[in-house]
Design a binder for these strands. Structure first.
Length: 568
RNA sequence: CGGGGUAUAGCGCAGUCUGGUAGCGCACCUGCUUUGGGAGCAGGGUGUCGGGAGUUCAAAUCUCUCUACCCCGACCA
């Protein structure tokens, strides 16, 4: 690549509308340009990175037994009506009509199309398992696109789907894909964690998210330093291993005028918030339901809304309804004689001699004990985990980090094969729905994640495998100096001949401008050619972050060849 | 969808309150000089002041309206 021949519109100043590191960098270094909200053009340097990431994904998936296809992005509504998702999908799916007034959509995902393909094409169980993927553009009309290509509306995604006769072979493929994702992210040079995840609307089976660790990540992850255990904080299981101690004191009703919060109660009584419980009233399918968590814990709404009696999505009871239905007011609620179903979080249920509201304005009970003072109906997991909690696998105390979700793999079961009548004859000749898996990997988001993780000390440090090019050749005054020009072009073509990806700054620019751009782009190596060193028969050779070496052109090229080999 | 903000040259911004015919830095174009860390001198404005409507002798500026973009939240995963 020659700078005089490609568009690399670097920016001296930070664009006003960019917030996070990767967005700022990608705009400033000339990798991308925004067309409209959530829509980006990938310019040559950015595209080079994108293609490298794609190719690593291809190699690893092909190795793992998957096959690549390319499916249409514009899809007929019929398929989506068949699966039932035409009505289920909200406005995030962009819909349109063709000239015959037929409905189409711009695909946010490809389950329907791939299921349709396989039901028509796969005719024998002997062709299974069938593992299909594509690297394609997706469109999701996100409510709020942001952070550049990190959360764009149009983006490149690798989506894979596997089809199986039975669970066992599915598990095998799921494991293979899980491992392939690890290989992909490792090869790209990303520090990542695979975490247990909530499959959400995608199914009810096993599900794992792959997160690239970064401060700017949108998700909080909880993990054990002593094992592989890791989970999204939103779905991490909270456990309590302590056995409930025996009561040591008699229940006591205390006047607590004007004291309405856990903080105020613990201050007033001089006890830790973890010695209190808070009682939250939410709407339920058969009237209000009480949820009890320890004073220092927070309710996990997703967990709570999965309780059978609780309405989903979780809705807190309004003040008026609270008074009408339970006769109590906010700030003095407690589980004793509440008269509605109560779910108690494990940690709260293991408390003895705790403090809670007395269901009477201005009063609390202290030294309350389950069983003795109030029935313990049901102990459940309804809170968010906290840093320092025991990990669900018991291996250690949870630590939190932030992550960027770049991949998510799901077990789909027979959700789509059932609704779309995708069946296969088993060995006994019986028609049985395919068992399916689904494997997503955000390719454009990975590029942003690479930047987030490798931008340090005011500059980008591209991992060799995914750098836009291996080496940045800065020719000092190449337009005026014939000697420099000849040496630079010679080195450039020799690199091309040796399969070295080189970005040659042959512009008629002052050296300072070229150096500044080279610093900004941040390629792994830099070679500077100028009259000064050429007089000694050498060029300047620099690995990112290291001292400059003076080498002959031959030596420099040999070093690059070695670096190239080392990276593949 | 709710709240807040912004929209003036390729980029960053001033001018808007108080209406008077478009401005700064960088970039860009021409010439000369310069040339190892974002050059100097001289010349050049490249603009639908986001769009539309209105008030006015006169609108970047005031009014109404639409749109786009950014931030926070809700939503989604």
């Amino acid at each position: 690549m020659r700078a005089s021949h490609i568009l690399v519109p670097t920016l001296r100043e930070t664009p006003a509308d960019a917030e996070i590191t990767s967005h700022i960098y990608m705009l400033r270094a000339g990798l991308i340009r925004q067309l409209a909200k959530g829509l980006y053009t990938w310019l040559p340097l950015g595209l080079a990175v994108l293609r490298k990431v794609e190719n690593i994904i291809r190699e690893e998936l092909n190795n793992a037994g998957a096959m690549e296809v390319l499916m249409p992005v514009v899809q007929p509504a019929e398929l989506w009506k068949e699966s039932g998702r035409w009505d289920v999908m909200g406005p995030e799916m962009l819909r349109m009509k063709d000239r015959h007034d037929r409905d189409y959509c711009l695909s946010p995902t490809h389950e329907e199309v791939v299921t349709d393909l396989v039901r028509n094409v796969v005719v024998s169980y002997k062709q299974l398992p069938c593992n299909i993927y594509q690297i394609n553009t997706k469109f999701r009309d996100e409510i709020r696109p942001r952070f550049g290509v990190m959360r764009a509306r149009e983006f490149v995604m690798k989506d894979g789907y596997s089809f199986h006769l039975e669970e066992e072979t599915f598990e095998e493929t799921y494991r293979a894909m899980f491992n392939a994702y690890g290989s992909i992210l490792s090869r790209i040079g990303l520090e990542y964690r695979a975490v247990e995840a909530d499959p959400g609307s995608m199914g009810d089976g096993e599900s794992h998210e792959f997160h690239v660790l970064a401060e700017s990540g949108e998700d909080a992850l909880a993990f054990s330093p002593n094992s592989d255990y890791a989970a999204n904080v939103e779905s991490a299981e909270a456990i309590s291993t302590i056995d409930r101690p025996l009561p040591t004191a008699e229940i006591e009703k205390i006047s607590t005028p004007g004291i309405l919060t856990i903080e105020a109660v613990s201050d007033f009584l001089g006890i830790a918030p973890s010695r209190t419980v808070k009682t939250l009233i939410v709407e339920g399918s058969k009237g209000p339901v009480a949820l009890v968590v320890r004073g220092d814990h927070t309710l996990n709404e997703a967990k709570a809304s999965r309780l059978p009696l609780v309405k989903s999505p979780l809705t807190f009871l309004k003040e008026e309804a609270l008074l009408r239905d339970t006769g109590v007011t906010k700030g003095s609620i407690g589980p004793i004689q509440l008269g509605i179903p109560i779910f108690v979080d494990h940690s709260a249920s293991n408390l003895a001699d705790f403090t809670c509201g007395a269901n009477e304005a201005g009063f609390h009970f202290s030294n309350v004990n389950w069983g003795r003072d109030v029935d313990l109906t049901e102990s459940v997991d309804i809170r968010n985990v906290q840093e320092g909690d025991l990990a669900a696998d018991g291996s250690g105390l949870l630590e939190f980090k932030r992550g960027i979700e770049v991949g998510h793999i799901f077990k789909l079961g027979t959700k789509y094969s059932d609704s779309m009548g995708a069946t296969i004859q088993d060995r006994s000749g019986k028609n049985t729905p395919f068992v399916m898996g689904c494997y997503g990997l955000g390719v454009t988001r990975i590029v942003a994640a690479i930047v987030e993780q490798h931008y340090r000390d005011e500059t980008m440090h591209w991992p060799i495998q995914v750098a836009p090019a291996l080496v940045h050749l800065v020719a000092v005054n190449n337009v005026k100096s014939e000697q420099v020009r000849e040496a630079a072009f010679s080195l450039y073509s020799r690199c091309l001949d040796s399969g070295i990806e080189i970005y040659f700054d042959d512009r008629d620019e002052r050296p300072g401008v070229k150096f500044a751009d080279a610093d900004l782009v941040g390629l792994p190596y830099r070679i500077t050619i100028g009259e000064r060193t050429l007089a000694n028969g050498v060029v300047e050779f620099q690995s990112a972050g290291k001292e400059i070496e003076f080498l002959t052109a031959d030596e420099a090229i040999q070093k690059l060849i070695n670096a190239n080999e080392g990276s593949s």
